[in-house]
Design a protein around this nucleic acid. Structure first.
Lengths: 179, 179
DNA sequence: TTTTTTGTTTAGAATATTTTGAACGTTCAT
DNA sequence: ATGAACGTTCAAAATATTCTAAACAAAAAA
């Protein structure tokens, strides 16, 4: 019953779990996306309990996150109270969505906090002018860097073909040789 | 004694802690880098215990990681057994180093595991040809995507001026308006 | 040799995160 | 109305991670 295809499926889903963790998501999110991605049919929550090996509660939470990131879609069927989930398969779209949501959010926080620190230095620097100047310098350098990074991200998001921003990128040799 | 500059310093270091966690590093790593970055002098392990508020053991581990990522440098002084740490201040260099090391490692893993899964399908697909074809299709799509991503990363790493790959990127308006 | 100074390791404590399972609310069919 | 089928929530359990403090090792000084 546990044939080779199921083995392959397991292996693939495990890989997605790793990737999810690496990006700071729960591994169940990877498992749920994997199960949906490898299914020819849209899946229900109960399917996910079977196919992704998670509890129903967890499945419920993960599909919500995944939908928010636009990695899956919820399909409703008339005369059927179940929710059906199918995968987004355009990975570049997904990346853009994730960059635009999750990253941006944390990003703005960071930029904001650094800017605040710099302000605090400006408003405080009466006693030790040399130290204040040094701190302001360093903080400003980082703030400027974040500003540039933000600009870069925004440009990437604006590209309508993120797929091939540089010539020679889509030639598609396997691309796994050591750098 | 807790003057405004110290407050600002704290605030900044806290921000770095957040950033560290977001990137999947321990927050102590952010604190240690922050302390070093905001010091006009190179710091010793014991300085870090004071200034970053971590234990010596933790400091020891974090400086090793940071050095490995080329975010700090270890300076040795003749006739002095202490190690002195000073920050790398070229953030673009740091990004390249991190992309090249940490990301690449996990990346190759992922790409490898997906490729393996695909092989497993190829070698297993005797019983259910339709299903095998479907799985192979999906897995191949993801494998190809990873290949492209890897290519993109390699191109970025190869740019010698990551700072301004696009025109209009270094104009330096604060860059924090909503997208 | 012994003591001091310094960096490293590690077992266990502390903390943070994820997962589960059961309770709950809603909607629909009977 | 009642019960069945769903999805959601939440407190508690399980798990994973991080941190500390103490022991340790190496090297230099006394």
């Amino acid at each position: 019953m546990d044939n080779g295809l199921d083995k392959a499926r397991e292996h693939f889903i495990q890989a997605l779990c790793r990737i999810a963790r690496f990006w700071g998501f729960p591994k169940a999110m990877g498992a749920v996306y994997g199960a949906i991605y490898l299914s020819p049919e849209a899946l229900t929550l109960d399917d996910l309990v079977r196919l992704a090996g998670v509890s129903k509660g967890s499945a419920s939470i993960q599909v919500r996150s995944l939908e928010r990131l636009r990695m899956i879609r919820k399909d409703l069927r008339v005369g059927d109270r179940k929710d059906y989930y199918s995968p987004e398969t355009d990975f570049w779209k997904m990346i853009k969505s994730i960059l635009g949501q999750r990253e941006k959010q944390e990003f703005d926080r960071a930029l904001g906090a650094v800017a605040e620190s710099l302000d605090m230095v400006h408003k405080a620097g009466a006693a030790d002018l040399i130290r204040a100047a040094f701190l302001a310098d360093r903080m400003k350098a980082m703030k400027d860097f974040f500003g540039q990074l933000d600009g870069l991200v925004r440009i990437i998001l604006a590209l309508d073909s993120l797929k091939a921003p540089f010539p020679g990128m889509t030639t598609g040799e396997n691309g796994n040789e050591p750098r």
